[in-house]
Simulated assay, not measured.
Amino acid sequence: MLIDIFHDTVCPWCRIGKKHLFDALSQWQQETVNIRWHPFLLDDTVPASGYEFRSFMQERKGIQPEALENLFNETKLIGAASGVKLDFDKITLAVNTKLSHQLIAIAPDDIKNQVVEAIYQAYFEDGLNIGDINVLVEIGKTYHMEATELRYQLENHNFFDKIVAESSFARLNGITSVPFFILNNKIQVKGSGSVELFIQALNRAVIMEAKI
């Protein structure tokens, strides 16, 4: 089973969708699953220094502070119901996510899923700046990535062109929002879904594959 996941690392719904998918996979367990992570840059205009989080989100959503807090609270509750922690009070910066996607690209396949989750945790639970190389190097070190080489690759932006190209390619091919999941190049799941929805999609993908 091949699963392509389009996401951004500052998207709370992407973290919720990831949790739903992985919970579904833990129940399903019918065959080996290969997951490929694809960047989808929600806003690549954010500078390296970032923007103040709440004012940026108010402008982006076109809503007043009270409505924004209500949105955060609703999202936080939905996340909690899925077993995902989203602490918007700790987030102070809206960040450019290219560097965090670069860390995912660099990470070996056997730890890539864990690195993705660690980046989500750093941002949504610890309020860390995941556009900061030092933060990303520390995440990599947790998974035994060699710090000096990792810092060199991040500082030299080795994957930036590929990340931007992948994100643009996704938009050109009709993906307008994330999370977005494609199973075996055939079954699409748009949005964060639910565990039950992902189990149904996995079963459909197997049936469609068997018909070939």
Rank of each mutant, 00 (worst) to 15 (best):
F40R: 08
K76C: 07
I63T: 04
T45V: 03
V33I: 15
G83Q: 04
G62A: 09
P47H: 11
A48D: 14
V33M: 00
E66H: 01
A81M: 10
L71G: 12
E59P: 00
E69L: 09
G50E: 09
Q30S: 07
Q29N: 15
I35R: 05
I78A: 14
A48G: 09
I35M: 05
T75S: 09
Q29C: 03
F53Q: 10
E52G: 06
F53C: 05
I63Q: 04
N34D: 11
K76I: 03
P47R: 10
S82P: 00
I35G: 02
T75A: 06
P47D: 11
N70P: 00
L68N: 05
R60C: 03
V46L: 09
W28K: 00
T75M: 05
Q64E: 13
S49N: 12
T32L: 01
N73S: 11
F56T: 05
T75H: 02
L71E: 12
S49D: 12
E31T: 10
F40L: 11
T32E: 13
R60T: 14
I78D: 14
G83N: 02
E69D: 13
L42P: 06
D43I: 10
T45P: 02
V46E: 11
R36P: 01
E31A: 08
A81Y: 04
Q58G: 03
S49F: 03
L68Y: 06
K61C: 02
L42Q: 13
R36T: 10
A80C: 06
N73F: 04
P47Q: 12
N73V: 01
G83C: 01
L77W: 04
L77K: 14
F53R: 12
S82N: 06
R36G: 00
T75Y: 03
T75P: 04
F56G: 02
N73W: 01
R36S: 04
D44V: 12
G62E: 11
A67W: 03
T45F: 06
T45A: 12
K61T: 06
S82Q: 06
L77F: 04
N34M: 05
F40I: 07
E59Y: 04
G62M: 08
K61G: 00
L71P: 00
R36I: 06
V46M: 08
T75Q: 04
A48E: 15
A67D: 13
Q30T: 07
E66R: 00
M57P: 01
W37V: 03
G50I: 05
L42W: 09
P65C: 11
G62N: 08
F40C: 11
V46N: 07
E69W: 05
A67V: 07
V33Y: 04
T75G: 03
Y51E: 12
Q30H: 09
L41H: 10
W28A: 03
R36K: 13
I78K: 15
V84A: 01
A80W: 05
V84K: 00
I78Q: 14
E52L: 09
E59N: 14
S55H: 08
M57N: 11
F53D: 07
R54N: 15
D44S: 15
K76M: 08
A48R: 11
W37P: 02
F53S: 12
Q64V: 06
A81R: 13
W28F: 07
F40Q: 09
G62H: 07
P39L: 08
F72D: 07
R54S: 11
T32V: 06
Q58P: 00
L71N: 13
H38W: 11
V84M: 02
E59G: 13
L77V: 13
E31P: 00
V84I: 02
Q64I: 05
